[in-house]
Design a protein around this nucleic acid. Structure first.
Lengths: 165, 165
DNA sequence: TACAAATAGGATAATTTTATCCGAATAAAC
DNA sequence: GTTTATTCGGATAAAATTATCCTATTTGTA
C-alpha cells in the first residue's frame, strides 16, 4: 500500500509544468495571426477575426484582444463593419519585424531580462549565468529583429510551413 | 478633453507585460537557491530555508515548495530538525547540471517546445519560425546541459557574480 | 433608412502561477 | 523526555494570464 501511494505522489510537482517555450500564449497567437494576416494581405485579401482564429487554432475573443493590441501599436490595420477585417498594407509587410510584435505583446524583457530575474545584471554586476546567457540573448534578439513577416508569409503560402497542429 | 483621455488609454495593454526572460519565477528561485546551496556545501556548510530566501531575495514559503520539489527530484538533500537545512553532497556539486534543475521545475518544453506553441513542429511540419529558432534552442540546451553548479558556486564565493539586486 | 457583418471594448470568469499560513513530523541538544 | 529549530505538506489566498460574453460602434449594401 505504501508503495502504491508513493507512486501516486510521483507527479506532485509545484506547477502544472510550464508549457511555454519562450513567449506567452498571447504572443504566440499574435505572431501566428500576424503571419496569417500578412500572407493574405500579400494577395490583397482582408481577413476576419473568425477566419484568423480558425486558421491559427486560437480562442476567438482572446485573439480579438491581441489583435486590438497590435492595431493600437500600428502593426496591423483593422477595418470595422461589413467586409471589414484585418490587413497589413502590402508595402509594409516586409518591414515588420518579429521583434515589433513580441515587443508589443510581451515587452522587451526578452532582450533586457536577466536569466535569473535579477533587476540589476550586467558586466559589472553579473548574475551567475550572465555570461552563459549573453550569446543566447543576443542571438535571439538578432533573429527577432532580422526576421520580417514577408519571409514567413511566403512560406505559409507555399505550404513550406504551417500555422497549426 | 478627448486628447487627455486618449493619453490615459495609451497604456491599455492586454497583459501586465510579461517580465519573464526564459524561466518561470519558480525556476529562477530554484536555480539561485541551488547555486547558493552548492556554494555553501562546498565549504561543508548546510543552509536553512531562511538563509536561502534571504540570500536570493525570494518569498520564504514559496521557496520552500520549490526546494521540496528539488529534494523529491534528488537534486538537493534536506535534513529536518534542529541544525537541519539543505545541502548537496560535495562530490555531486560538479555533476549537477542546470538542465536538471530547469527540467525538474519547468519541464522540458525549453528543449522540445515550438516557438509558436504548435504541438507538432519538426522538419517535416515546421512552424513558420522553426528554422529561426532551431539554433537558439540547441544552443540553450547545450548551455544548460554543460553548465554545472560548481562553476557557478565558485563565482559566487569569489564575488565574481551575485545572487540578488 | 434599415439591416447585416464586422471590430472595439468593458465586465467577468476560469485557469495557472505565485505566495502565505499553519500544523505535523523530525532531529539535535539539553 | 522536553524543548527548540527545522523541513514537510495540506489548505488557501493573491496575482497574473488566458478565455468568454455581451453590448456598442462602425461600415457596406439593399
Amino acid at each position: 500500500m505504501r508503495i502504491i501511494l508513493s507512486y501516486l505522489k510521483f507527479n506532485v510537482s509545484l506547477n502544472q509544468q510550464n508549457n511555454q517555450f519562450m513567449f506567452s500564449k498571447a504572443c504566440e497567437y499574435g505572431l501566428k495571426a500576424s503571419i496569417f494576416i500578412a500572407s493574405n494581405s500579400y494577395d490583397g485579401e482582408r481577413v476576419s477575426l473568425k477566419e484568423i482564429a480558425k486558421e491559427i487554432n486560437s480562442p476567438e475573443a482572446f485573439t480579438a484582444k491581441i489583435l486590438q493590441d497590435l492595431v493600437r501599436h500600428k502593426i496591423i490595420n483593422s477595418v470595422k463593419g461589413a467586409y471589414g477585417g484585418f490587413e497589413i498594407p502590402k508595402n509594409e509587410i516586409s518591414s515588420i519585424k518579429l521583434s515589433q510584435i513580441v515587443n508589443a505583446i510581451d515587452g522587451d524583457s526578452i532582450y533586457r531580462g536577466c536569466g535569473l530575474g535579477l533587476h540589476v545584471c550586467d558586466e559589472n554586476h553579473p548574475c551567475p549565468v550572465h555570461d552563459q546567457f549573453k550569446d543566447i540573448r543576443m542571438q535571439l534578439k538578432d533573429m527577432l529583429q532580422n526576421t520580417n513577416l514577408e519571409q514567413l508569409a511566403l512560406d505559409i503560402k507555399s505550404g513550406a510551413s504551417f500555422l497549426k497542429l
